[in-house]
Design a protein around this nucleic acid. Sequence first.
DNA 1: ATTATAATTTAGACAAAGCTAAAAATATGT
DNA 2: ACATATTTTTAGCTTTGTCTAAATTATAAT
Lengths: 228, 228
Amino acid sequence: MYFCSIEKFMTQSEENYLKAIYHLGRKNPGVISTNAIAEEMQTKPSSVTDMVKRLSEKGFLNYKKYQGVNLSERGIRKALMIIRKHRLWETFLVEKMNFSWDEVHEIAEQLEHIQSEKLIDELDRFLAYPKVDPHGDPIPDKNGEVQSRKSKLLSNLEINTSGVCIGVRDSSASFLRYLDKNQIALGDRIQVMEKEDFDDSIRVQIGGRKLSLSHTIASNLIVTQESE
Amino acid sequence: MYFCSIEKFMTQSEENYLKAIYHLGRKNPGVISTNAIAEEMQTKPSSVTDMVKRLSEKGFLNYKKYQGVNLSERGIRKALMIIRKHRLWETFLVEKMNFSWDEVHEIAEQLEHIQSEKLIDELDRFLAYPKVDPHGDPIPDKNGEVQSRKSKLLSNLEINTSGVCIGVRDSSASFLRYLDKNQIALGDRIQVMEKEDFDDSIRVQIGGRKLSLSHTIASNLIVTQESE
DNA sequence: ATTATAATTTAGACAAAGCTAAAAATATGT
DNA sequence: ACATATTTTTAGCTTTGTCTAAATTATAAT
């Protein structure tokens, strides 16, 4: 009886499920429900059950009927490699192909399934081993290591403290375009001036400019922990 | 009744058939047989019949039962765009990703199916609008125009004439590696010294070096028509 | 504890893209 | 022209990934 050392081929659909399950596991750790996966994948729970069985047979996750799933060691490794590809391609699109950060997701969804380890390693080198993608999300390295920085949400900063914007929690095109429109970019230092009890909006200062941000906006902006 | 202006989505398989049919049409013009397509696609004639029906319904080719197929205007345009993508990606892989010319085909086969016109146009710009790919094959431009140069096969050059090597007819990895091993590259000037009647091999001179090439090799090397 | 509700799984169907084996049409040889 | 060979098509099956509808299990409420 062999230990399967040969990496089996995965279909795009299988890869997409794996990635979705990984992301769900980040959001709230523990066991992941069929319904949650269906929601994330925009599909039906019955389809999820089928796929989850297949992924479980292939050893990417642990699954017991009616008990939900969680990724195996192997599943995590595989998911990290897919995320690595996705984020490297996003970086490539923004840095070299003149895309803006709200345009890259769909295309990276396609590119992340290209099978060639050499290509990904060369892309990594070509981009000078970036640590984060255009949305500030960390890029796993060749060994699956992800650099994690101390961070908090802008909405949790105290009055009169500041932080540098290093990422977004929601990376939907509409949110990203909102930020562009209001000239808020990764790397900007944001100082909290005032908090409005009524609607939890906050008044901030960015590079001399003052503006007020709704709670929804503030709770989707990730800033450095150590405030100056 | 609309003229379909909206480009319908094509599956990867459909795109592959279209490309194969286009290439077959180049090789020997006229009507293309089911068997020839099956051979090219490494599949069975019955599968070809099914696919050809679909492509015909979608208006990419003209098909009458038992009469073979040929591409429609629309099919040609589509095929040229797929070839454009394939060859731009091959160029990218060699020029920017440190691949050698015998490694790029399989990966370009995957990349050619990525759907994003903007990406391809940006890639074109990024590579400075190359006219030929790493194997010397012409890259169709955004409008489907292909630059064609006067060329002949090395095996057809007269004794004591020379030509510049501009392409290969066979771009299999084994042939390309043979050329690498013998230090024959695109751009090299090759002079024909002698022809051997017995086996049609030829004796040539390349940058001072003399070597003899079998007929098979010589008839797969494309050189400029106008010999110096 | 029993029932109602929600979550999950099963069963059966469908489309895409392939296959094999058999049938039909075309082409070829004498 | 007719029989044979070749090419092409059809019919029916397989797999992947989806769906709907029905059945089953788990959870929550009284």
